[in-house]
Nucleic acid binder design. Structure first.
Lengths: 73, 73
DNA sequence: CACTTAAGATGACTATAGTCTGTCGAAAGA
DNA sequence: TCTTTCGACAGACTATAGTCATCTTAAGTG
């Protein structure tokens, strides 16, 4: 599995845990609804600041998200 | 301090620790020499796969790099 | 059934990641 | 002085992150 796909999997998992729709998450992150969807489907990869923004919104430390990605590779 | 600048600081620190020039690191990462410089100066921010590639080349876990960035924010 | 919400998907767009070529100055060695 | 190595920096470029409008489908819900 590649980094982009792994990020999508982890993102979806934590969004669901936070009980948010893609749209709700997008609003809280100041990102676009369709972009969140593309991230989850592995069709886009985030920059590092986007990673931090999303992690922040999901109340999880960025390094923990990254660690989970590493575990999927 | 923002995420982009913090990444630059951390990158430079670990590149020096690995005793590599920007050009040597760039070659090993398959990235451009000037781009490594821009990252270190906070003029560009990496995507997540670039983060993983660089961490890999520097023999450090991506989540550790990220943790250091968090500490600088 | 109609109505709503969530998400997949696409095409066109703007902003920026990442490349390439080259110049410059500082430091260090021959 | 001459050369090499390193890094800052600039400009022009290509690839892709991220936006926006819109349509479609699936799963509830009354």
């Amino acid at each position: 599995m590649n980094v982009t796909d792994a990020f999508g999997v982890v993102l979806k998992k934590y969004r669901k845990l936070a009980n948010l729709s893609q749209e709700q998450l997008a609003l809280q992150c100041n990102l676009d609804r369709t972009y969140i969807g593309m991230l989850e489907r592995g069709q886009r990869q985030p920059t590092i600041t986007t990673l931090f923004t999303i992690a922040d919104t999901l109340s999880i430390e960025p390094n923990k998200l990254v660690k989970e990605i590493e575990a999927l590779l």
